[in-house]
Design a protein around this nucleic acid. Structure first.
Length: 697
DNA sequence: CGTCAAACCCGTGCG
DNA sequence: GGGTTTGACG
């Protein structure tokens, strides 16, 4: 290749590492890794930051690092590998085991949240958290906030007081960023400024309520662990001292609390390796701060900074486009991605007259690519928001093209599943007021007022050490029977029968309520079976509940997979959920200004930069073929307008980097707008250019 | 107090 | 299209 690549100077560690590798190692690291990867995988102790561009073998390097540590004598269970998804952790440990041996399975790998739960179950009592605390998801947390708000009488007094969902966001944001509620409101929700003090007060009451009922939301899992380690010297020494190495994946997405946790966990040994790519930081909305990866060298003095720059995933045209998109954003760690892959098609930009055309285009492209030998599962359709794919899903279903959607509604978030789970939670933790609330409201004749009475009664029972499950309070004749039935159910759930039987018993109890409450219960029914199937995989109720909170299953997955077991399905995914994945062929749909960037994320430069990085992440998922499509107009819900412009991040892209592709309909043969479009796409194999793309009616 | 239906309001991403 | 709030009624 004529292109000139500038490789960074070799760091002392790199040459030292390659020169000093022990001869007795099973794995030939130098042969299997490039020099940059080798330096990263075999770096000695101390703080290390690996800046790894998209597709540069970041996971591979981390896997080899795990294997290297184990092979050079580090006890596997004294290595913590922290990730953001369970999938990532599992995948790495399985691969490391394949590389070396089963010892790698004993590495403590998991999400930050899962790791924290473990610590809290063991040591949480030191800060007043009961061993059997219940984990709240976002909606649960919002319910608790609502409960507190009602108690404080903040709802009726003021008209424009934020609703529970907004309150939950604000309080969560404050917790994750290590800011005060007032600061968060000032920065992100200035229109609530007058309520700032009331909201802060509500936040304190929220914390108190969670502690009183033995509840912990996602933020608490991290926050309480950090608090525990920061305030209980002996426990910090014990937890950190148990470890000799801490490895963190996707470090660009850590929030304030997680960065703190990493520091605390490494405090006793200082061996902390973090891997990340500041260009792929896309979780600002949940408190992630790219500043942590940028400030790593200052936060951990003496830190090594290593870079991975050779991309093994994509062809050069795809990388060129991705790099072009990124140029508009600030990027602190200079790195230039390059590939040795030769050739490759220029990515295509596909304007479609409307959404329906877009769906047809995607279906045809996918089928054509499959004809050319690329399995459906190696192809992906990506989008900014979950709702973007609704029309496409309908078309795929109509044509019986199997697909899975990643990153949509979770099974655990569906109202009817929450109903079921509430009963299990009550059985597990008598103090779980949110679950009681949900279970009791199902009963006919019971409303918020009655729930309040029952909760008070339960509180009194608990305080006096009496049985809280008997529900022997002065039950009104209107609902006495149903309360008795509930008490009977709870007694059965608690009598120690196998989990699967508990769920059967619960289903029998719930069914009449289910059919009464939801007029569309037929459509919801498969989810209950899904829950029963899931339950069959766990030993205990506690395991099921914990997994439910920490590893939410996608709602649609079960039935779709079952229906098309013969062929692994096409992947539909939000860009967020696609991070870390790669596909032969990628189509990004709905690349409209207003969708990407989202119209509500254009106010500040920081928001806009993140949207740009999101596009970058989407583009760099593709190995060989890449298309970006958008409908010429898309109805915008709510304020009644149309989105018509292509994403601002793409609009001035030179044709050489992103080639216009015209859709041509077979019957008429006439090109659709824009009239000046030059190319036409070829179906499979990406050889296209000559043959107009044919779309069946 | 509770229920039901109609009006209302949405910011999307996730453990 | 779904969850939440409101207002009329039992």
């Amino acid at each position: 290749m004529a292109r000139r690549f500038v490789l960074p100077a070799r760091t002392p560690e790199a040459s030292a590492a390659s020169g000093a590798l022990r001869a007795d190692l099973q794995i030939d690291y130098a042969a299997e890794l490039n020099p940059q990867q080798l330096a990263a995988a075999t770096a000695s102790g101390g703080p290390t930051l690996i800046v790894a561009g998209a597709g540069t073998g970041k996971t591979r390097t981390l896997v080899y690092r795990v294997a290297y540590l184990v092979e050079t004598g580090v006890e596997p269970d004294r290595i913590a590998l922290l990730t953001f998804t369970r999938r990532a952790a599992r995948e790495m440990l399985v691969r490391a085991s394949g590389l070396l041996d089963g010892r790698c399975e004993r590495v403590r790998g998991g999400t930050f949240h899962a790791f924290c739960v473990e610590v809290l179950r063991q040591h949480g009592e030191a800060i007043g958290l009961p061993r059997r605390f219940t984990i709240l998801d976002q909606a649960d947390a919002a319910d608790v906030i609502d409960l507190v708000r009602t108690e404080k009488g903040l709802d009726s007094r003021e008209r424009r007081f934020p609703k529970k969902r907004s309150l939950q966001r604000i309080l969560s944001s404050a917790a994750n960023r290590g800011m005060s509620v007032q600061e968060v409101i000032e920065e992100e929700h200035p229109h609530y400024a007058r309520h700032a003090d009331a909201i802060a007060e509500l936040g304190d009451a929220f914390q108190a309520t969670k502690r009183r009922y033995g509840l912990a939301d996602y933020d608490d899992l991290l926050g309480l662990t950090a608090q525990l380690l920061a305030t209980q010297e002996a426990i910090r020494k014990q937890v950190s001292g148990r470890l000799t190495h801490v490895l963190v994946d996707e470090y660009q997405d850590v929030n304030h609390v997680q960065a703190d946790l990493v520091r605390l966990l490494a405090s006793e040994h200082g061996n902390v390796t973090v891997v990340g790519d500041d260009a792929q930081s896309i979780y600002r909305f949940r408190g992630a701060d790219v500043g942590h990866i940028l400030a790593f060298p200052e936060r951990f003095p003496g830190a090594r900074v290593l870079k991975l720059e050779e991309n093994y995933r994509s062809t050069q045209p795809i990388l060129t486009l991705a790099n072009h998109v990124l140029e508009g954003a600030r990027e602190k760690y200079e790195k230039r991605l390059f590939t040795r892959k030769e050739g490759g098609e220029t990515p295509g930009l596909v304007p479609c007259p409307d959404e329906e055309w877009q769906s047809r285009f995607v279906c045809e492209l996918v089928l054509g690519t499959r004809e050319a030998g690329v399995p459906l599962a190696r192809q992906a359709v990506l989008f900014r928001a979950s709702w973007c794919s609704y029309a496409l899903e309908a078309e795929l279903t109509r044509r019986q093209i199997p697909f899975v959607k990643v990153g949509g509604l979770k099974l655990a978030e569906a109202a009817h599943v929450k109903d079921m789970v509430a009963h299990l939670r009550v059985a597990e933790n008598a103090a779980d007021a949110v679950a009681w609330n949900r279970a009791l409201l199902l009963l006919e004749g019971v409303g918020p007022r009655t729930v309040r009475k029952v909760l008070d009664w339960i509180g009194a029972q608990e305080a006096s050490g009496a049985d809280a499950y008997g529900l022997a309070f002065g039950a009104d004749a209107r609902y006495a029977d149903s309360v008795r039935a509930l008490a009977a159910l709870l007694a059965d759930l608690r009598d120690g029968r196998p989990l699967a039987d508990q769920v059967d018993r619960l289903l029998a109890y719930y069914r009449p309520h289910f059919e009464r409450i939801y007029d569309d219960w037929g459509r919801r029914e498969p989810d209950l079976d899904g829950l029963a199937d899931l339950a069959a995989r766990y030993e205990t109720r506690a395991d099921l509940l914990e997994s439910f909170a920490l590893d939410p299953v996608d709602l649609s997955q079960e039935d779709v997979e079952g229906a098309y077991r013969d062929e692994p399905p096409l992947v539909l995914s939000t860009i967020h959920s696609a991070k870390g994945l790669e596909f032969d062929t990628v189509v990004l749909i709905d690349a409209l200004d207003g969708v990407l960037p989202n119209e509500y994320a254009v106010k500040t430069q920081a928001e806009l930069d993140e949207e740009r990085r999101l596009l970058y992440v989407a583009l760099t998922r593709a190995e060989r073929e890449l298309y970006v499509s958008y409908p010429a107009s898309r109805w915008r819900r709510g304020s009644g307008g149309f989105l018509t412009r292509v994403s601002r991040f793409l609009e001035d892209t030179p044709e050489a980097l992103l080639e216009r592709v015209a859709l041509v309909e077979e019957t008429s043969g006439s090109a659709l707008p824009p009239a000046d479009a030059r190319g036409a796409i070829g179906a499979g194999g990406g050889k296209g250019g000559e043959t107009p793309k044919r779309l069946g009616p």
